[in-house]
Nucleic acid binder design. Structure first.
Lengths: 335, 335
DNA sequence: GAGGTTATTGCAAACGTTTGCAATAACTTT
DNA sequence: AAAGTTATTGCAAACGTTTGCAATAACCTC
């Protein structure tokens, strides 16, 4: 069982051909006679031969690996726990695999600030997918400027020298808020931090919906972190100090919405009767929550596919640009 | 900006030393004079020099990479969406990084069946962390037998030729169920598939608690997949066909518990008054749910640390064995 | 200051692939 | 059957590190 690792030269010897022929045969190079190819390949299978990727990468100067960098501001040292982000990563993993690439999961802890050097020069990956635009995109910009093949999951409306794939956050915010208004809400609350790129767009949509409403609406914004905990506390606090000053909430994410929902329920504010609530993302829990959560669904699967496609196009020296993914308003019980 | 990649030999030239000295200097080899080391290192920083990992790995015969294999039965082609599993991966990522290793995220789609060949022989990683024991562990066994450094997140009680790290599922099930009984439940329902390794242990704990109860208890088991959807449907179905035949549920996971909770609420079964409910995992949502979900907390952070520690020990040729992680029963509103 | 010891550096080989080019084998064509 | 083509294979170099060993430089000791 502890047999010596079979190298290409050994396989070649077994097949009675030279190393070069063996190599070409494995890569199905048509210059090699079909019979020889079959023979070598069959032998390889039989001995479960595997190429040494280190050697192969060194020679080819490419890795067939894509690095996914989780780019969170505060959480640098913490593990992420927003299920939505993890879902995005998982979908990217799928998409990457389907293209025959491997996925190196990384973050700034490992990569430091010089992503180009670390990943590209360091030959750890052929390209980068950055998840989370963050507030400061200087590291991304730098990597892009140095010529790193790179795509970002974020807000596509952000002007940038790199392609961004993401949902139409503006439209999402607009539709969600318009929906709240249509359902009778007139005192609207935005829950989230407009300083964040994607959320800022959702906020713009929120305001646009209010501006465009036929009836006059009040509005307020509570700026919080994107966690259910923060939302829970913020709503609690607000209810305690000001009472029920709103009848519609557009939460910047489902986790935030669910935190708000909990606070509301605990204080016997009925959702959707007293307050209508819409979230963003459509995480699995949105449907399971009670009342089920109306939300703006982000098509992460399609997005992941686009991200990878655009990245591979860059590896192919094509120029690609940002792209918006359609969102879908899901009206469930909370609104 | 599109400057040529600096190689070690170039850096050496800049520093006025030989390649070998440069190499040793970068690795802080004490055989090199301190001044020289400083000089080279400073120069490296200044030019953000990065070693070519492909070359380095080829030469060193190790990668400084750990592969994490998501080992799910059905979902092979689907992206995972159980937030708990994703949390585990995220925590492993942390732990791996802290040890200076990178994380290759993989699954059977890429790796095929011969994990030893693919990862170890293929020099893609130095060791494997398998997440999810699954029902059939032949692939794991095979890899372990071939000598792959490998640890598994699963049920540590399973006899195996490889180390397993996981929670004390039996005790968790026991405590959760005993807690339900202590709170007055006597008609108990187990929600989950006992055929699955870890869940089987939870089920054993469930039964043991009932056997050990001072009062006689009824019990029933509803075998479902580990999804909130399945739980929702199962409970709905059960209520419709049989009515409320239980007053305590031990769900094999939080997602399952939350699915059940939704079904109960929709049918106006009060939790915890009519039915007491305990889940397993302590995902973020457990606390945010309303009523908040009592559950058995799994210490994924500690587990991740242990997994990595044990894997590195194996790389160091030490022999390690399975280990159980303490669980903690969290009594919240649902029970 | 000669001989011995130790601290520091450099030479060159090796890790296992892939590929340009040259060489051979197998066919055509006349 | 010789000469010209084309199909198939092999030789050897290259990818960029790391490291055993030999070489040199620096330092002692008497």
């Amino acid at each position: 069982m502890e047999q010596k690792k079979l190298k290409l030269v050994d396989l070649a010897k077994l097949a009675g051909v030279s190393t070069s022929t063996a190599s070409r045969a494995l890569n199905n190079n048509p210059v090699i006679k079909q019979a020889t190819r079959d023979h070598v390949q069959q032998l390889a299978k039989q001995h479960n031969f595997t190429l040494n990727t280190a050697a192969s990468r060194l020679r080819l100067q490419k890795t067939k690996v894509i690095a996914v960098v989780i780019n969170l501001e505060a959480n640098t040292e913490q593990s992420i726990d927003d299920p939505f982000l993890l879902k995005v990563v998982s979908d990217i993993n799928q998409a990457v695999n389907r293209q025959g690439y491997e996925l190196l999961l990384s973050n700034s802890y490992m990569a430091g600030d010089d992503w180009y050097g670390y990943f590209i020069d360091g030959r750890r990956a052929d390209g980068l997918i950055v998840v989370g635009q963050g507030k400061q995109q200087n590291r991304i910009e730098q990597a892009a400027n140095l010529g790193a093949p790179l795509v970002v999951w974020g807000d596509p409306k952000t002007p940038s020298n790199y392609p961004i794939v993401g949902s139409d956050n503006y439209l999402g915010g607009l539709q969600a808020t318009a929906h709240l208004i249509a359902r009778g809400a007139s005192k609207l609350l935005f829950l989230g931090d407009p300083g964040h790129a994607e959320i800022g767009e959702r906020y713009r949509g929120f305001k646009a919906a209010i501006d465009g409403a036929s009836e006059a609406c009040q509005q307020q914004t509570v700026k919080i972190d994107i966690t259910s905990q923060a939302a829970y506390e913020a709503i609690n606090q607000l209810l305690r100090s000001e009472g029920l000053t709103f009848d519609g909430i557009f939460a910047c994410s489902d986790m935030v919405a669910l935190g708000a929902l909990k606070a509301l329920k605990e204080r016997y504010v009925s959702v959707p009767n007293d307050v209508r609530l819409v979230g963003f993302d459509d995480i699995g829990m949105a449907d399971v929550s009670h009342p089920s959560l109306s939300t703006v669904r982000q098509n992460t699967q399609l997005a992941a596919k686009m991200l990878v496609t655009k990245l591979l196009a860059q590896l192919n020296n094509e120029v690609v640009d940002s792209q918006e993914i359609d969102i879908e308003l899901l009206c469930r019980q909370s609104s």
